[in-house]
Amino acid sequence: MLVDGMALLFRAFFATAVTGQYMVNSKGIPTNAIHGFVKHFFTAIEHFKPSHVAVCWDMVSTTFRTEMYPSYKANRSDAPVELIPQFDLVKEVVESFNVPNIGISGFEADDCIGTIAKQMQGEANVTILTGDQDILQLLDDHISVALLKKGYGNYMLYTPVNFQEEKGITPQQMIDLKGLMGDTSDNYPGVRGIGEKTALKLLQTHQDIEGILTNLSLLTKGQRAKIEADLEMLHLSRRLAEIKCDVPVSCLLEESFLDINPNLAIQKFEELEFKRFHHYVEKKEELTLF
């Protein structure tokens, strides 16, 4: 199981921050995001029962995508002050579980996840735990995606089959879909005036962006005009949408075998003043023997 660490951490933070419940400990450190992260983490382990686990992180805000397009994710506000001290602490918690923390400057967690997942072909089946639908482009015969839904333990598990049944396109075509329609959360526009419904229809008919451009004469006058007006942004948006699966990162299976030392984990829980989490790691035999 490859975990999108930031997806879990941010989800956990905002679930309680909205009501001001930051769970500040006796040292004055907020711990609400870490608390929720741990709960999400072990709930997923109990649900999917992976034999190997690694957590991937975004390292810095500047990546090769912001170099290509400075406005990439520029619409996002700075992290809340209560969350900032939890970024490093949560990695210490993961380390106390003897689970690898993985991240590389200049790339996003998605790129690390994609690279490692593809490296596992022929070695292991991979489940990616995230809340980000962008990762669905990685689906293949050995990669599935568990999208977090509201609450704990609720997932939408995607495979290439049910993804194609739902969207009418292949996972790989999702890159072209985002190139056409853009992504408001990541702040790149795609082709102005082309929404998801139109983009899906174009891809179902012409397979990919290259096929669409080759057959511009078959499009409606309005579709053709929109694409021709935003041709440069179309190609840029596609490059921004594509998860890189060849970044300089790796994680060997033996490095990620799930083998939690309860004493180390409990020591970290007590340091953070988490009083009700001992049971997660005391079930060591259940977590490691599959």
Rank of each mutant, 00 (worst) to 15 (best):
N215C: 03
E273V: 01
L252W: 05
E270L: 06
D230R: 01
K268Q: 12
I243P: 08
R224A: 11
L252G: 13
L213I: 10
Q172C: 02
Q267T: 15
E242W: 04
P189Q: 05
E271P: 05
K226N: 14
D230E: 13
L203G: 03
F257W: 03
T214W: 05
L240E: 06
L213T: 10
H206F: 15
A199R: 05
Q204F: 02
E254L: 04
C251R: 10
I194Q: 10
H235K: 14
Q223M: 06
K226Q: 14
E273F: 07
T184Y: 11
P262T: 06
E273W: 07
Q207G: 00
R192L: 04
G179D: 11
N187Q: 06
R224Y: 03
I175H: 02
Q173F: 05
L252D: 15
L180K: 10
L234K: 05
A199L: 09
E273C: 05
E273K: 10
L258D: 10
L180T: 01
C251N: 11
S217N: 14
F257M: 12
S185K: 09
H206A: 10
K201R: 14
R224N: 05
D230P: 01
Y188G: 09
V191F: 06
P248T: 14
A241K: 08
I209D: 04
C251I: 13
P189L: 01
S217P: 00
H235D: 04
S256M: 15
L180C: 07
E271V: 00
Q267R: 06
L253E: 12
T214E: 15
E254R: 12
K226P: 05
Q172N: 12
Q173N: 07
I260P: 06
P171N: 03
G179C: 07
Q172D: 13
I175F: 01
G182D: 04
E254S: 14
G211F: 08
D259S: 11
I212V: 14
L200M: 09
E255K: 07
L216P: 00
I209F: 00
R192S: 11
M233I: 13
R192G: 09
C245E: 12
V249S: 10
L236H: 04
L253T: 13
L272Q: 06
L203V: 14
Q173G: 02
